[in-house]
């Protein structure tokens, strides 16, 4: 399977070495988004506003870590390094992580989490729908499974956005503020970088910019039902995650996540 997909990508772009690197870099971006967001969502356990929501957050976190593990394992098998999922998660440094800034931000209040989830799931919904037609058979299989999961995540965030927006005055204000908080991180989800361009050219990936209109329109529908307004565009926008240039919270996240295996090199867990 892996050699097939490598060939597909290589043939389409005409250069195995570059195609391989862009291909795997693109995949790592998908996996890192999923892992880092899974990590942040797992932090909600015991902090959710009701026990039922602990259950829901955990389910979403588990879906995402599952996506990350599948993609890491696949990357390790095709990038010539034979790295395991744990090599990729625990032994890369911050500059090698390719996730967007949105997912690495510290856990805020429940409204902020629902705003982040709404955008991220809207993005992932379009992403995995498109990747369900990828030329990379392995990625295609992962996308078909993940699409069912992220549709549920989107529904969950939308249900809550509507309840918070059209709930009490306090919840409305908090949800509106959350949309303002999340706004500067949204553009990065839909920014094309060299790797996504190469992956899209090869028929492996999809250009993030092509996913923006549908996601924005889906979110706009939710906001309308929630009696919320789209926030004014922010002056600054997060950028650089796909090239490994992150925001300050990322270092702390990795320090916490990676410290144990790195304290015991060579140990198995």
């Amino acid at each position: 399977m892996s050699s097939d997909t490598e060939t597909t990508a290589a043939t389409a772009t005409g250069g195995p070495a570059t195609a391989g690197a862009a291909h795997t870099a693109y995949l790592l971006g998908l996996a890192d988004d999923a892992l880092i967001y899974s990590h942040r969502l797992s932090e909600w356990l015991t902090w959710a506003p009701m026990l039922e929501e602990d259950m829901a957050m955990a389910n979403i976190s588990l879906d995402l870590i599952g996506q990350a593990r599948s993609i890491y394992t696949y990357v390790g098998s095709i990038d010539g390094t034979n790295r395991t999922e744990d090599d990729l998660a625990y032994w890369r440094d911050e500059r090698e992580f390719r996730n967007v800034h949105l997912v690495e931000q510290r856990r805020g209040d429940f409204a902020q989490e629902m705003a982040r989830m709404l955008w991220f799931a809207a993005y992932q919904k379009g992403l995995y729908a498109a990747l369900s037609g990828s030329a990379d058979a392995q990625l295609r299989a992962i996308a078909v499974k993940a699409l069912k999961e992220v549709r549920y995540h989107y529904d969950h965030a939308a249900q809550w956005a509507v309840r918070l927006g059209d709930g009490t005055g306090e919840s409305h204000d908090k949800m509106q503020a959350a949309l303002t908080w999340v706004a500067p991180y949204v553009a990065e989800l839909f920014s094309d970088d060299a790797n996504s361009v190469a992956a899209a050219d090869a028929g492996v990936g999809v250009l993030p910019s092509t996913l923006q209109a549908a996601a924005a329109s889906a979110v706009a529908d939710v906001l309308r039902e929630a009696t919320l307004e789209a926030p004014a565009d922010s002056r600054w926008h997060a950028r650089g995650g796909r090239e490994g240039v992150h925001s300050e919270p990322m270092g702390y996240l990795l320090a916490e996540m990676q410290h144990l295996p790195r304290s015991h090199p060579g140990a198995a867990w």
Partner: peptide, 26 residues
């Protein structure tokens, strides 16, 4: 230990386990 589990497999297992505790509470 959710944020510090030493492997992705252990991390997933621990999330599922802590989630089960919430479920049993329910």
């Amino acid at each position: 230990w959710l944020t510090r589990a030493p492997s992705l497999r252990r991390k997933a297992i621990l999330i599922a386990k802590v989630q089960d505790e919430a479920g049993h509470g329910l």
